[in-house]
């Protein structure tokens, strides 16, 4: 007979991750890693998606009519949504869509992963190399999910001949990225002891 039930291993790891995540923002250098990584990732994601790209030039903002209704309308591929506004700033054109919101979420996860990895690395008596690099490794599929939104166009660039399977697989990239990012977040976060920072 046990007198108290200890929290499950996962529950404990999550609690510790949340504590570590809070800790990230108490360290300016770790915060910088989070914000810098998130902004960088978002830009790369939008670039991979084609929502930041060279445009026709000029300075112009266009919002499509019925933007709200079109905001959730799928477009070129899985997790690719219809742009509802176009912003042209000189040579660069930015398209605003639900993907910017999705990208922000992913960017936040990638940023937190690297922020926690940074904290784990900074922590005295650091954890093993494998664990401290896992946040970085987990960020890779997240970056790839940006290309998933491009749909099979990416295959043309690669010169890979597509098949029904490959096209179908694209729809799994973003969910896989999210799961891996959350998993790695807990993996790194659970190894950080706020008391030792």
């Amino acid at each position: 007979m046990r007198e108290s039930v200890p929290p499950g291993r996962l529950g404990a790891a999550v609690s510790r991750t949340i504590a570590a995540a809070t800790e990230v923002f108490r360290h300016p250098d770790a915060t910088l890693v989070v914000v810098g990584t998130a902004v960088g990732y978002l830009l790369i994601y939008l670039y991979a998606l084609g929502h930041i790209a060279p445009g026709l030039g000029g300075f112009d903002v266009t919002v499509v009519s019925g933007a709200l209704g079109k905001f959730f309308k799928p477009e070129l591929g899985p997790f690719s949504f219809t742009p509802v506004a176009r912003v042209s700033v000189g040579p660069v054109t930015y398209l605003f869509s639900l993907n910017t919101v999705l990208g922000l979420g992913l960017a936040g996860l990638v940023g937190m992963n690297l922020g926690l990895t940074y904290l784990a690395w900074r922590q005295p008596a650091a954890c093993g190399i494998g664990s401290s690099s896992s946040g970085f490794l987990a960020s890779i599929p997240a970056v790839l999910s940006g290309t998933a939104c491009c749909g099979p166009v990416v295959l043309i660039v690669l010169g890979i001949q597509a098949s029904g399977i490959i096209v179908t697989a694209f729809q799994f990239l973003l969910p896989i990225a999210v799961v891996l990012l959350l998993g790695s977040l807990v993996l790194v976060g659970r190894q950080i002891d706020p008391a030792r920072l």
């Binding site: 084609g50 030039g57 499509v64 009519s65 742009p83 398209l95 869509s97």
Partner: peptide, 8 residues
């Protein structure tokens, strides 16, 4: 009527 980038 669409927000597309016709430069790319």
């Amino acid at each position: 009527g669409f927000a597309k980038n016709y430069g790319s």
